[in-house]
Structures are given as structure tokens and as C-alpha cells.
Design a protein around this nucleic acid. Structure first.
Length: 893
RNA sequence: GGGCGCUUAGCUCAGCGGUAGAGCGCCUGUCUUACACACAGGUGGUCGGCGGUUCGAUCCCGUCAGCGCCCA
């Protein structure tokens, strides 16, 4: 006996264990089945399951389970990401709380702590993915820093370097003063900050009393100014171009240069150029051959090292040495004001770049870093999307991808961190660099170069975390070894992710995949889903206090409820607004299925493989079998098209709206009746369709469906996951069955409607008298008498013979007028009003169609079938009006 | 400033050239022997505004407005 309710807390973990232990999630590279591959976006090892994971992983698991049931050799590749900065931050903080400092303990000891931390805490997210029911092939789990993936990283680094696509360069980078590392453009976010624009007066050399006023938002960098730029066509400054100014404080002579970068409309039209501390100024400096002294160090504190004396204000400059950039700003402004060189101060809202992890303003800093030539690698990736080798779903995201890729900048891949893949480059004492997979190879190269052994020092930096993530689609399959997995599962079928990492990850996988896998894309489709927001559409954040914990929802409502809710809300290109209430609502659907199962069980219905749908003879069996066929077709098409909302809706509609609301009710009289072929057929159809329902819903609701599958004997426990996805079964004369059942549903609906409107209590049952009924209708009424009695609260159904009884309510069903004698309860004027209303409605519709058909243009130009359809509709409305007129006439007297 | 998207019933959203739909909510009944996480019935919309294309526009085009996101 099934329990009264589905005990998710007890059943879900047991079934998951069962699947995992029986190898149900395993891919079979040795098998012949067509593969279906999804690479998990590797969660950070520092992470724990949040609601966004719940969305993306549910979507991936639905696809994986669906394709697996279709007979595909499904590989959903699991793994985690080492997450350089994030992890280093977490461990460093942990150590700090124990009074230990990273730099004091040294690199080796620190890394040992990180690995230790990973062993203890790194498995959190993978345990939580199991709670979500994710059918990942766990024995294949990879980690971006495991030995194999590290080998792939070295291989790629060395190969790109040898191809000239990876190089060292001294350029401006985004420097994060908190983490003391370079970060990529993508890790920088622009934030609005209220600040000021300061107007500084720089004296013109040799013309006492003459000044050029420059406007700047960063006065503290003026120590590093090496020019002032004006627009070449700015008449105000034409005579100054080529002359020199005397930079206050340092006393340095700096030229006035003409450069179109200076915007005459902005500020004063003259702009100070600080090549070492501003990306635009750096470009200007290159064009004019300017020096680029740095005036801020790794901590973003003032350094005088690159500002040679003699200085104009030596005491003041010395007081700045080692001062934080913002303190230096204050000091310099005060000093310039004192010197009467501050012309004006205006309030201003700045767009200030911030480190996305540290949250502090980043500092452009001139350093030597490793770069990947992204521009070159991007070209094949752009072409692959243009030609449809990789298709984004929804398509509009391709624009986002193109916009980024067509304007891509060199990718800075080195990071001044310890946790990550250490760069495989070694330096000789003279600075010569040797890039090699191992130190031995680097030594050999050095020996060949110098003719003797030299002492090599390895580059201390590590690679950007996204460097290894970019290789994920093939490194996880064993590359650079040519493994059977690599041969079978590359390229992947679909990559599922949010739009926020199209640049970070999708674009880079495309570049690396195409480059290292013989021009083959890493995945054929990219499905981009929305963000999870709260029920008001607000982004979830800890500070707003509106975060939802998926694990808490799972505990409260069960995994299936959460997953089905997510599927229902995941429409195309839309964010998912999720509230607790939504999950609670959709849990009802699971309960509904559970109760239907209990009903089947108490009627002795269980799996019966001997039942042949093609041999069904009763309209009821044929109708529900045909309905199941249609639901399967809709759901399958929806899943093929990544329409998770439609998949959920089609399943929901069929299960609740057809199977439970009508079929089970229609079946009750038969099931309560005598044993025999009719009962056997209803039971056969019921178990068959219920089996189909379990399969249909398994991708979205894996646990309850798997439990019921075993309970009803469709198969051993934990075998539904491998059951064949349902297809259409042959059903004889489905059309006729549909017509008959539609009539029945229509009749019951109409009778219920009129009874409710007339306020007839359910306890009052009345006969149904048929007027104008065809032979077919009379035969149907007789055949379904027990159903009609029960569902339409009727005592009997018979043709009207003789006079119309006093006080009837009437409804039109097709050609028939159904009369309900309600002498005691009927309100004649209300009934007249009701019929009048129905007639008015039919008349209004008829008028609309008449007008349409009266339009010569419409008849001449519209498609023939549309015209025909409207003629049919007009006839139907007119017939209905006639019957309603007759009904009104009957009660008139 | 550039780009993308959204605006349909009280709420959340489907539909996207030819009868406006769903779920939830709300209202009215009902503990009808699977289910009150239920059953039955009902209420509710000039499909953001204005133009255009078309025999016909919620749907296509233009424009305006509001909202959201991305990039500068």
C-alpha cells in the first residue's frame, strides 16, 4: 500500500543512492549508442549550491535524463573549478583568523593548506548536486587542477607560445591593489562614484604668468604626467603645441602635444597625460614617444622611484612617499591650492573601475604580464557561430557574443597569486625566458642556447582560472591523450549556462576548442537561460535578504517539486521569478499524481505488459491512449526545442486535466462494475497510460516517478531512469473516440454549468430530457448513462416525449437541447435571462462573422480554408441561435 | 552615448497574421468512497500609446513612452 503522501525526505536519498550504486549515470564509451554530451559548468570548490545552480543543473539534468531515455549514451561530465582568487581568499581569511599570514608561511606551506582545505570542504557542492538529483557520471569527476587537466594546461600554454599566440608584454593592466595581482578586463566592473573634477594650472615654460589649465578626476597621478594634450584643431591652444610646461611639484618639463584624443568639448580642452596610470593616456604616450613613469606601487601607494630629481618641491614630495593614493590626492590638492595652482573644483559622477572580487578601485599599472592573442583565436570562433556550427538558443545571444568577440582585447592570463596553475616558464639569469612543459625541458633548451647549464628560476605567477576552464570540453575527456572518450564525446551537444558568463567562459571555450581540436567547435548548441530572481523580480542578494536556499526548499517540498517548478518557469529568454509559494503550488502537482496512483492501486491496477493498446476496443480506452500519444508528442517537441515551460505545461495539462479530471472519473463506474472484458480494458489502458506518464515526467520529477515505477511493477527499483522514452502507440479509430468523448465532456460541462447558475445543490438530482437528439446522441447517452448520472447529477437520460414539463432549464449541446426539469427550484426570469444572454452572445459572434463574409476583399483574398471555416462557424452560430429561440419559446408561456 | 530585451486577466507568464489562453488569486457552492496540496462553477483583458503594411494586426514595420540588462 502506498503511504498517504510521498515521503520525499526518506525516498529521495535512497533512490539516488540506488541509481549511483547501480551505475545508472554512467556513460559507455565502449558502446555503439549515439552519444549525448553535456559538460557541467564546473562550480567553484568554494561554492555551495545556490538557487542559480538549481536552475542550471535542473535544466541540464532534464536534458540528460530525456536523452538517456531516448537511448542516447548520455555523458553529463561532472567536475569543479579551482577558482584562483576566490579560493585563495577563503583560505587566506581562514588562516588569518588563526593568526597566520600567507606571506609569512611561504608558498609551499600555503598551497598545502589550500589542498588540505579542498580535501575537507571542497566536496560540499558535489554532495548538494546529489540532493538535486543530478545524474552526473561521478566516477569521471574532474578538477581543474588535477594532474590530467594540469597537463592539458601546460600543453596549451607551450603550444600557443610556440605559435606566437601567447607572449610576454609590458602593458597597462588592471591591477587589484587588494589581491596584488593583475586581473582581466572581464573581472573589472564599472561603478558610479560621486567625486570631483579638479582644474589644475600648469605654468607655461618661459612665459611667466601664463598657464594651461587641465581638468582631471585623478590629480594624484599628476606626478607621473609626461605631457599635456590638446586637440589639433583647438584654436585656443594652437600656439602652445610644441612648447613646454613646467609640471608643478616635480618641476619636470613636459611638452604640449596635439592629439585628437583630447576632446575640446570636455573640461578645458587640455588634458594631462599620465601614460603609466591611464589606458587612454598610455596610447597617447605611445603615439608621441613619451616616457611612462609609474608613481604608484603594487599597494597603490605613492612611490618616487621613477621620478628622478631634482624636484621643485623636494620636501613635499618626500612627504608623499608611501602614502596611500587617496591620501596623496588630498595632500596634492591642498598643496596646489596653497600654490594657487588649483583653478576650480566641480562635483562629478565618475565611472570608476572596481575589482569584482575585492570591490576596490583598480589601478591601471604598467607591468610585464603574459597575454593570449585573443584577436587571432577569436576569428574562427566568430565564423563558427556565423555559419551555425554552434547555435545559441535563444538566437539573440549571438549578438552579444559577436559584439564582444569582434572587439576583443589581448587576454592577460597571468595572475600574481599562488593558487592556480603555475606558469611553465623559466628565466635564465640574463632574463631570457624558456617556455616548456617541464623544468627538464626548459633546462635542455637553456643548455642548447647557452652551451652550458644555467640556473633557471620559474615564473612565480599562475594562470587566470578561466584559462583552464576554457579547456574543459576536451581536457576532461583526457586530452592531450587521444582517449576513446575524447573521440566519442567531443564535441558536446549542448552547453547550458547563464548569459553572464558568455564572455568569461563560452567565448574562451570556443576559441580554445576550435584551435586545439582541429577546428571543431566544443558544442553544437549553447542554451542560455535567465537569472533566478525573487517573486518581485529583484535580483537575489544577501544584502537584500531575499536569497532562497534550494536545499531548504528541497527539505520543505521535495526535490521533484523544486525541479518541476523551475521547469515550469523556464521560458525562452526570460528570467525566472521564483518564490516559495510557487514551489508550494507545484508540489500539489506531485501530490495529485501520488493520489491518482493510490486510486489505481486500490482498484487493483498495476503494470501489465500483456496489454496491447492496438487491441483496445472501447472509446474510453482509445481516447485516453490517444490523449497520451498527443501529450508525449507535445512534451517531446518541447524538450527538443529547450522549451522546459511547454514540456512542464503539456505534462501537467494531460495528467491533471485529462487523466485525473476525466479519465479516472469516467473509469469509476466501470471499475465499480462487474468483472469482464470492459473492466479489463479500462484497467489495461489505465496502467499503460500511467506508465507513460511516469516516463514523461521522469526527467523533471525523477524521484516520485521512479518510486511509483517500482511500486506498480513497471520494473525493478531504479530502472525507470533507463526506460525507453515513450512514443506513439497505435490506436484504432482515435478520431471517433475523440468525437464521442468530446461530446460527453461537453454535455457534462453544460449541465454542470446550468445547474451552478440556477443554484441547484449537488444533492438534487434530476432527469435529463433530450429534444432534437440524433440517433447517435441517444445511443451515446445510453452507453454513458452511469457516467452521466454520476458526473452530471442526473437520475436518468431519456428523449423528451410529450409536453415540456413546467419549469425547465435548457442547454444546447450540438444538435440536441437538454432540458432539466427543475420546477421546484427554478427561477423562470433568471432562466429567461440566461438563455437570452447565451443567444445574444451567439448573435454577436454571428454578426462578426457575417460582416467578415460580407467583405468582398476578404472572400476574394483570404485563404480558401479560412473563408470556409468562417462559413461553418456562421452556420453553427445560427443553428445555436435557432435552438435558443426555441428554448425561449418553450418557457414563454 | 551604443546595443539587446520586455510591456497580454489582480499576480506570474504562454501565444506571435484569421474564434484572446494557462497557473495562481478572487467569488460561489461541495468533506461526491484517490486527492480540501481537492472537486464543481464563475469573475476578470480597448493584448503600453500613436501611426503604417494587410482583406484582416496582440502578432509584421515605424515611432513614442515606461521598465530591465549589457557595453562605453
Amino acid at each position: 500500500m502506498l503511504d498517504k503522501t510521498f515521503d520525499h525526505a526518506a525516498i529521495e536519498p535512497r533512490l539516488y543512492q540506488g541509481w549511483e550504486d547501480s551505475g545508472a549515470f554512467a556513460a559507455h564509451p565502449e558502446g555503439a549508442a549515439k552519444p549525448f554530451t553535456i559538460m557541467i559548468p564546473p562550480p567553484n570548490i568554494t561554492g555551495s549550491l545556490h538557487i542559480g545552480h538549481a536552475l542550471t543543473m535542473t535544466v541540464q539534468d532534464i536534458l540528460t535524463r530525456f536523452r538517456r531515455m531516448q537511448g542516447r549514451d548520455a555523458l553529463w561530465q561532472p567536475g569543479t573549478d579551482h577558482a584562483g582568487i576566490a579560493t585563495q581568499m577563503v583560505v587566506e581569511r581562514l588562516l588569518a583568523s588563526q593568526g597566520q599570514k600567507r606571506r609569512e608561511m611561504g608558498r609551499e606551506a600555503f598551497l598545502a593548506h589550500v589542498w588540505e582545505w579542498k580535501r575537507e570542504s571542497g566536496g560540499t557542492i558535489t554532495r548538494q548536486l546529489r540532493r538535486l538529483g543530478a545524474s552526473l557520471d561521478w566516477p569521471r569527476e574532474r578538477f581543474t587542477m588535477d594532474e590530467g587537466l594540469s597537463e592539458a594546461v601546460r600543453e596549451v600554454f607551450v603550444t600557443l607560445h610556440s605559435q606566437g599566440l601567447l607572449y610576454r608584454d609590458k602593458r597597462l593592466v588592471n591591477w587589484d591593489p587588494v589581491f596584488q595581482t593583475a586581473i582581466s578586463d572581464l573581472e573589472v566592473e564599472s561603478r558610479e562614484v560621486k567625486g570631483h573634477i579638479w582644474h589644475l594650472r600648469y605654468p607655461v615654460e618661459g612665459e611667466p604668468g601664463r598657464f594651461v589649465t587641465v581638468a582631471t578626476t585623478r590629480p594624484e597621478t599628476m606626478l607621473g604626467d609626461t605631457a599635456v594634450a590638446v586637440h589639433p584643431e583647438d584654436a585656443r591652444y594652437t600656439d602652445l603645441v610644441g612648447k613646454h610646461l613646467v609640471l608643478p611639484l616635480t618641476g619636470r618639463r613636459i611638452p604640449v602635444v596635439a592629439d585628437a584624443y583630447s576632446d575640446p568639448e570636455k573640461g578645458t580642452g587640455a588634458v594631462k597625460i599620465t601614460p603609466a596610470h591611464d589606458f587612454n593616456d598610455f596610447e597617447v604616450g605611445k603615439r608621441h614617444g613619451l616616457a611612462s613613469p609609474s608613481v604608484l606601487d603594487a599597494d597603490a601607494k605613492v612611490t618616487l622611484a621613477e621620478i628622478p630629481g631634482p624636484w621643485a618641491e623636494p620636501d613635499f614630495l618626500r612627504s608623499l612617499d608611501g602614502l596611500d593614493r587617496f591620501a596623496a590626492r588630498k595632500a596634492i590638492i591642498a598643496k596646489l591650492e596653497e600654490m594657487e595652482l588649483l583653478a576650480a573644483v566641480e562635483p562629478h559622477v565618475n565611472q570608476v573601475p572596481h575589482g569584482d572580487r575585492s570591490g576596490v578601485p583598480i589601478e591601471p599599472r604598467l607591468t610585464m604580464q603574459w597575454y593570449v592573442d585573443a584577436k587571432t583565436l577569436a576569428q574562427p570562433a566568430i565564423r563558427a557561430v556565423e555559419t551555425g556550427q554552434t547555435v545559441f538558443v535563444p538566437r539573440q545571444w549571438e549578438n552579444t557574443f559577436f559584439a564582444w568577440m569582434r572587439d576583443i582585447q589581448p587576454w592577460c592570463v597571468s595572475r600574481q597569486l599562488w593558487w592556480g596553475h603555475q606558469i611553465p616558464a623559466w628565466y635564465a639569469p640574463d632574463g631570457e625566458v624558456f617556455v616548456a612543459k617541464t623544468e627538464a625541458e626548459a633546462q635542455a633548451a637553456a643548455r642548447a642556447k647557452f652551451g652550458r647549464d644555467v640556473e633557471l628560476v620559474r615564473d612565480p605567477d599562475v594562470l587566470d582560472t578561466w584559462f583552464s576552464s576554457a579547456l574543459w570540453p576536451f581536457s576532461t575527456l583526457g586530452w592531450p591523450q587521444q582517449t576513446p572518450e575524447l573521440a566519442k564525446y567531443y564535441p558536446g551537444d549542448v552547453l547550458v549556462t547563464g548569459f553572464d558568463i558568455i564572455f568569461f567562459w563560452v567565448a574562451r571555450m570556443m576559441m580554445m576548442g576550435l584551435h586545439f581540436m582541429d577546428g571543431r567547435v566544443p558544442f553544437e548548441k549553447v542554451y542560455i537561460h535567465g537569472l533566478v530572481r525573487d517573486e518581485k523580480g529583484q535580483k537575489m542578494s544577501k544584502s537584500k535578504g531575499n536569497v532562497m536556499d534550494p536545499l531548504e526548499l528541497i527539505e520543505a517540498y521535495g526535490t521533484d517539486a523544486l525541479r518541476f517548478t523551475i521547469a515550469s518557469l523556464t521560458g525562452p529568454g526570460r528570467d525566472v521569478k521564483l518564490g516559495r509559494k510557487r514551489v508550494e503550488d507545484f508540489r500539489s502537482f506531485g501530490t495529485k499524481i501520488w493520489n491518482a496512483a493510490r486510486f489505481l492501486e486500490m482498484n487493483g491496477i498495476k503494470a501489465d505488459p500483456s496489454f496491447d493498446p492496438a487491441s483496445a476496443t472501447t472509446p474510453l480506452a482509445r481516447w485516453i491512449l490517444d490523449g497520451a500519444n498527443r501529450a508525449v508528442a507535445e512534451a517531446t517537441a518541447a524538450l527538443e526545442a529547450f522549451r522546459f515551460d511547454e514540456y512542464a505545461a503539456a505534462s501537467y495539462r494531460f495528467v491533471w486535466g485529462s487523466f485525473c479530471d476525466w479519465f479516472l472519473e469516467f473509469a469509476k463506474p466501470v471499475l465499480n462494475g462487474p468483472d469482464g472484458p470492459a473492466k479489463d480494458e479500462v484497467k489495461g489502458a489505465a496502467q499503460h497510460v500511467f506508465g507513460t506518464i511516469l516516463k514523461l515526467l521522469h526527467p523533471a520529477m525523477p524521484f516520485m516517478t521512479e518510486a511509483l515505477h517500482a511500486e506498480f511493477g513497471y520494473g525493478a527499483e531504479c530502472t525507470l531512469i533507463r526506460a525507453a522514452w515513450p512514443g506513439a502507440v497505435p490506436v484504432a479509430d482515435a478520431e471517433a473516440a475523440r468525437e464521442e468523448l468530446d461530446w460527453l465532456v461537453g454535455l457534462i460541462g453544460e449541465v454542470r454549468g446550468v445547474r451552478a447558475e440556477m443554484n441547484v445543490p449537488p444533492s438534487v438530482t434530476v432527469p435529463l430530457l433530450l429534444s432534437g437528439a440524433s440517433g447517435t446522441t441517444l445511443a451515446r447517452a445510453e452507453a454513458w448513462i452511469n457516467v452521466i448520472r454520476r458526473m452530471a447529477r442526473a437520475t436518468e437520460v431519456r428523449p423528451l416525449d410529450g409536453a415540456v414539463p413546467k419549469g425547465v432549464a435548457q442547454v444546447v449541446v450540438g444538435e440536441t437541447t437538454v432540458m432539466l426539469p427543475l420546477a421546484d427550484v427554478i427561477d423562470l426570469s433568471a432562466e429567461r435571462a440566461r438563455l437570452g444572454q447565451a443567444r445574444a452572445k451567439a448573435e454577436a459572434e454571428a454578426a462578426k462573422v457575417t460582416a467578415k463574409l460580407g467583405n468582398a476583399d476578404f472572400v476574394a483574398r483570404a485563404k480558401e480554408e479560412v473563408v470556409e471555416e468562417n462559413r461553418d462557424r456562421l452556420a453553427a452560430f445560427q443553428a445555436e441561435m435557432a435552438r435558443l429561440d426555441a428554448a425561449l419559446a418553450r418557457i414563454a408561456g
